[in-house]
């Protein structure tokens, strides 16, 4: 069989299988791929995943078809003899084609990923204290965070602080008096500005269905954005090893209607008022005292000489 026949056969098998796999991937699996479509961020992350999957499946199938074909057709039936002729020569055209295709595919993937990252405001990943891909209204939300009674109205971005500590997440709502709760309730159709920090070691706030993941670092405000699009509950897990009970550091949250959110926030603010008074004033980050991971150096509960941020601990217990 000549070279053309082999290539034609392999190409035919590859094209048929690739089209079938891509169709299956896009239409059957695609809509169910994580993280779902609960937020704009999740939607884009899912779209990104599916597009990469469409590119990856033909690559996988191509190599597997080729290997399968080689193993089936070119196995030595008897004692092997040297392979000569064209098959033994380094085909420069094939080499150039391979390198060109992989280069174009790679640059294309990087360009597409960058576009998606920028368009989707950081794609739900933690951008650190100085985010560069903020959605509209995010800056105002961060300013409003220091106006304890500004509340929230539909159309506004909502600042939420996520505090990781061994081994739970708690949430502060700065525009509602800065109350702290273990419930994460969010309004639908709203831009959410997560400000993620930690009181001890590094955690990672992973709101699975929201398409949000941001490391919670002590003394760092890691900002991540999302825009809620669907009502329902979502899972929160810690995805950075944070010690013995890392596996148990999970809870769930809910996206509710704007009115239900306002009602819940106002009620919780009132119910928690006594506790809130014991909390340190809202700040982007907090320093742990003797109870914290690196505690013991300043057991009197004062902040270190290097920082003017607020202190959580025996004098200012977390709720």
């Amino acid at each position: 069989m000549n070279e053309t026949h082999h290539l034609r056969r392999m190409t035919t098998i590859w094209v048929i299988l690739s089209i079938a796999a891509d169709l299956l991937g896009w239409f059957v699996l695609g809509p169910h791929m994580p993280p779902g479509r609960m937020t704009e961020t999740a939607y884009h992350d899912q779209l990104d995943f599916n597009i990469l999957l469409m590119a990856a499946l033909p690559v996988l199938i191509g190599v597997w078809v080729y290997m399968g074909y080689a193993i089936t057709v070119w196995s030595a039936k008897r004692a092997p003899e040297p392979v000569g002729g064209d098959a033994a020569r380094g085909n420069r055209r094939a080499q150039a084609l391979w390198i060109s295709i992989t280069t174009v595919a790679t640059l294309g993937a990087a360009a597409f990923g960058t576009w998606a990252l920028v368009v989707d405001h950081g794609s739900g990943g933690g951008e650190g204290p100085n985010p560069i891909w903020a959605p509209g209204g995010a800056a105002q939300a961060e300013t409003a965070a220091f106006s304890p009674n500004s509340g929230w109205t539909p159309g506004q971005a909502l600042p939420v602080q996520v505090i990781g500590q061994q081994w739970k997440f708690t949430y502060r709502y700065p525009t509602f008096g800065g109350f702290e709760t273990s419930q994460l309730i969010l309004p639908d159709n709203a831009t959410i500005v997560f400000n993620v920090t930690s009181l001890d070691v590094i955690h990672s706030f992973w709101a699975y269905q929201l398409g949000v993941k941001a490391d919670a670092n002590p003394q760092v405000n890691d900002v991540a954005y999302t825009e809620t699009k669907q009502l329902g509950s979502f899972m929160v897990r810690c995805s950075e090893l944070c010690g013995i009970w890392h596996g148990a550091m999970y809870n769930s949250g809910q996206v509710v209607t704007p009115s239900a959110f306002q009602s819940w926030a106002q009620q919780t603010e009132a119910a928690n008022a006594a506790n809130t008074k014991l909390l340190p004033p809202f700040a982007w980050t907090y320093v742990p005292d003797a109870n914290g991971a690196n505690g013991g150096y300043y057991p009197n509960g004062k902040a270190t000489p290097y920082s003017s941020v607020e202190v959580y601990g025996s004098k200012n217990p977390a709720s």
Binding site: E3, H6, V63, Y66, M67, A70, I71, W74, S75, A76, P80, E81, V83, A87, G90, N91, A94, Q95, W98, I99, T102, T103, T106, L107, A109, A110, G113
Partner: peptide, 23 residues
């Protein structure tokens, strides 16, 4: 992602060597 280009060279070597081989 660029690193997948030289990594791909390894596959080029492997697949090219399998071509019309006597395995």
């Amino acid at each position: 992602e660029l690193i997948s280009i030289p990594t791909g060279f390894i596959y080029l070597v492997g697949m090219g060597t399998l071509y019309k081989a006597k395995i």
